[in-house]
Design a protein around this nucleic acid. Structure first.
Lengths: 317, 317
DNA sequence: TTGAAAGCGTTACCAG
DNA sequence: CTGGTAACGCTTTCAA
């Protein structure tokens, strides 16, 4: 049976004090309360099972100590990891995170932003947003995508990719293919070019596809025609697709073709062979994002966080 | 520059009407508004960039058309998939989902439940909760875990596991090991026993471990000593750990040891070899859960949804 | 068809 | 140290 909600009035009445005093006790301020009065109030709260109504509080205060997080796809392990890290980071600073996913649809993304704003969130984290949001009055930060109008935090895509490819080069590879997402993500591609150029190698074969396992799978089958001896994938998901395509083709990894990818989500440690990856600094990204939100730091300059090269079997190490 | 929030009053003033009329326009009810007045109001809303304040609305209405979803771990692909499905299902019915993760900690779980309740959610979905929650006045439903006090929806664990193991038996396996989570999840184990008994086989080796890749990895190394010819894992994560351990040991799959697992998350299609799985009916679970929440269906009886056997390479098919 | 006003649960100011 | 009370933005009844 749905119990009637217990309000502050009930508590005040039960404890024989005014609602103001209850408020002081609940919030431990802004006025001091006599110890015994305080005890009576706490007792009343316990007995009645009182829970403060956060919406009323939000209405009164105009703020909620809540952040909204929107990812393009909750099923993507990288985004899931990011969301989790943001949640944890925010929690340590007394904020609650409301997470939702836009399913890769800009329209849904806009709608969800609206929902979150209507709920008076104190800040918004957009993970790899598809477009510049129009938001006023609330701090916003983008992760993994630089935008025109909002502050952003991102991994060192270009340099990270370069280091990954350089490592492949150091294993003696001379034909290094690239599997990369569609338009709008030039950095990892540039890093790949940087490494090849620096080594005096000709440009390798390149396939543009979606950031998905299927995309990687299809891309690898195309790439095989160009007989690369190594492949760099711009995301883990794609690398996992590549892995399957290579296995199916009877290609040995890393003996026949070496493989490395960008992201470094946990599952790459358990593929066969385990993947050498350029690890996204998930925790640091989350920390910086939350930090900026709380500080109201709204410089539009993008903050770049360094990546980490994790060597495992797939590169030949 | 944080713009001052635009309120209903501003809109009313700008349009030269009362706040009531603005309300009628925004909510398309409960009173009709003359077409031209309506136009003026809409115009004002556009010009001023007015956004209704959902917290005020919630305070007034006592409801939010919002569901809270708590998973034990957003990084677990199964839970991520479930959360996504719930989000989608709720969206089609005009609800918004606020998702958060408890990190496997009962304490955090309780706290998050409190946060969500304080925000006046209209319902709560607990994915694989660790304990019976104490919630009054708001409908709650558990997914994938039956509890004492709340309604729940779950896959046909026992029957699904039985069918998975039966399939392994049909490939001629006679020593079928089981990798399963710790205490409190007896069903899949029972299904495994059912299948072995029905086939007149002796009990196979069993290892209890955590529901994680690491757990599966360790378990497989233990299991190897018992020389099974097939292994059934109670979750995908564990199966993926098993896969790695077997590969490292130079065991061929499925020739030397066949493998199947429970869950059927998307990544199992891209492991090597692709995993034969008992697929959890994620969409159906989500649909039923949301359905029950909306209907206020609070029968404590657990609803069981059938699973689907998906045959891929790892079993020998 | 529209306006005025009460009240949702909370906070914090002003008196006492 | 505590009580009374106005106000937050919204919905909806009652009157006009």
């Amino acid at each position: 049976m749905p119990k009637e909600p217990v309000t502050r009035n009930d508590v005040a009445e039960y404890a024989g004090v005014s609602t103001a005093v209850v408020s002081y006790v609940v919030n431990e301020g802004p006025r001091k309360v006599a110890p015994d009065t305080r005890e009576r109030v706490l007792e009343a709260i316990r007995v009645l099972g009182y829970r403060p109504n956060a919406t009323a509080r939000a209405l009164r205060m105009g703020t909620t100590r809540t952040f909204g997080v929107i990812t393009p796809d909750g099923g993507n392990p990288l985004f899931a990891e990011l969301a989790k890290a943001i949640d944890k980071e925010a929690a340590t600073r007394g904020y609650v995170v409301l997470q939702t996913s836009a399913d890769g649809d800009p329209e849904i993304e806009r709608a969800k932003i609206g929902e979150l704003l209507a709920r008076q969130v104190s800040g918004l984290v957009l993970v790899a947003p598809s477009a510049d949001p129009s938001v006023e009055g609330v701090p916003v930060i983008a992760i993994n995508r630089s935008l025109e109008a909002v502050s952003s935090v991102r991994p060192a895509y270009r340099e990270g990719a370069r280091r990954g490819v350089e490592h492949l080069v150091s294993h003696g590879h001379r034909v290094i293919g690239l599997v990369i997402g569609g338009a709008g993500h030039p950095e990892r591609e540039l890093g790949w070019r940087d490494a090849l150029e620096a080594a005096g190698l000709p440009e390798g074969p390149i396939v543009r596809t979606s950031f998905s396992r299927e995309g990687g799978y299809d891309a690898a089958r195309t790439l095989l025609a160009a007989s690369p001896t190594a492949i760099f994938a711009s995301s883990d998901l794609q690398a996992i697709g590549v892995l399957r395509a290579l296995h199916e083709a009877g290609v040995r990894i890393p003996e026949d073709i070496a493989l490395a990818s960008f992201d470094g989500t946990p599952e790459t440690e358990y593929t066969w062979p385990p993947l050498t990856v350029v690890r996204q600094p998930v925790e640091a990204l989350a920390r910086e994002a939350v930090q900026r939100l709380i500080d109201g730091e709204q410089s539009v300059e993008a903050l770049t966080v360094p990546t980490e090269l994790v060597l495992r079997k797939s590169c030949g190490c």
